[in-house]
Design a protein around this nucleic acid. Structure first.
Length: 327
DNA sequence: CATCAGGGCCCTG
DNA sequence: CAGGGCCCTGAT
């Protein structure tokens, strides 16, 4: 096992998200598969992150309320960040966790929706979030493809163990994602030996896009949605399902919902039509419903109901859902 | 034991 | 634009 890197310098920043802000429903997504780059307990999330090549350990602590939100962010590093670095890091975290997102229009518009209204009240102030950058998300999307959840978990774990950093901070040891350049020199054979299968080629080519072709996440943020989609679809191994997730989670396109995969189709059919998962509604019919009911915020609306469902699943009793997830 | 499909995507015809 | 093939794994 790799030796752990000790992140011994801690710096603290106070974050003030725009109210309303729901700490736990923002900082923990029960539908995400578990991975060793983060940990959560109510009121606290630990998350590793690489910023300007430095491996960091983050700790978010809830120190406020939904209407008076305050988050203490601990930043652990090897030797401390300069003020400008800490500042740019804080900006980026604000972006990735949508801390400044104004939900007023969204909340107003759907408060009376018989299905969405109650979820908006229960999870008032929840935002989507994506702790990693585009590169990390692409890797996660690739290991999700055509695999059961358990296998996806295994593939990411193996990749983190082989190419990531073991980071020790705040009494925990978590893995940090590798720098694309560090993986760019690895052969397809070596990757295949880690049992990622045919995904090895996608991993290599996506990594090369960052490490040697200069793909720039910030530049993609500045593109129009259509150009951004096209650029992402141009990446080898990235198709409509992965792009849909990325445009929403990484690029914050709240109305992005144009593709429904078969397993999601079953869940949506049950949620919105109470249909038996064995005989789901046609995906087109679901998409029409979303357009009509949630237009402008299609995926954000569905995100609230989806998270609500997966929080409920934690309490147990959703056998039909457990069967569809098959951990 | 063998067979099969899974939280897709690429490539071919 | 439909359909076959792809790595591996656990379920059947």
């Amino acid at each position: 096992m790799k030796r752990a890197i000790l992140l011994k310098t801690r710096q603290v920043v106070e974050l003030l998200p725009r109210a309303p802000f729901h700490f736990n429903a923002t900082l923990h997504k029960p539908d995400h598969f578990p991975s060793a780059d983060n940990a959560w307990e109510p009121g606290i999330r630990w998350q590793t992150m690489r910023w300007h090549r430095r491996p960091l350990g983050l700790k978010f602590e809830d120190c406020g309320t939904v209407s008076r939100p305050r988050v203490r962010l601990g930043v652990w590093s090897k030797s401390g960040l300069a003020a400008a670095e800490l500042n740019s890091l804080t900006q980026e975290i604000g972006y990735r966790y949508n801390l400044a997102l104004d939900l007023a229009d969204f909340n107003r518009r759907f408060q009376a929706d018989p299905q969405l209204g109650p979820a908006l009240r229960q999870w008032r102030g929840m935002r989507p979030m994506s702790p990693g950058g585009l590169y990390e998300y692409l890797l996660i999307a690739i290991v999700l493809q055509n695999a059961t959840v358990r296998r996806s978990v295994q593939m990411l774990q193996t990749l983190l163990e082989h190419y990531g950093d073991r980071l020790k901070y705040d009494g925990r040891t978590l893995y940090g994602f590798w720098e694309p350049a560090a993986l760019n020199i690895v052969s397809e054979e070596e990757l295949r030996s880690l049992k990622v299968g045919y995904r090895a080629k996608s991993i290599q080519r996506v990594t090369a896009a960052f490490a040697s072709q200069g793909l720039d996440e910030l530049a993609l943020r500045a593109l129009t949605p259509a150009a951004r989609r096209e650029a992402l679809l141009g990446l080898y191994g990235i198709g409509p399902a992965s792009v849909g997730y990325i445009l929403f989670d990484v690029f914050h396109q709240w109305d992005e919902l144009n593709y429904i995969s078969p397993w999601e189709q079953k869940i949506y059919s049950k949620l919105f039509f109470d249909a038996d998962p064995e005989t789901p509604m046609p995906a087109e019919r679901l998409l029409d419903l979303f357009r009509a009911r949630f237009g402008g915020y299609r995926m954000l609306a569905v995100h609230y109901l989806w998270e609500d469902l997966f929080w409920k699943r934690r309490q147990g009793g959703l056998d039909w859902l457990d069967k569809l997830i098959r951990l």
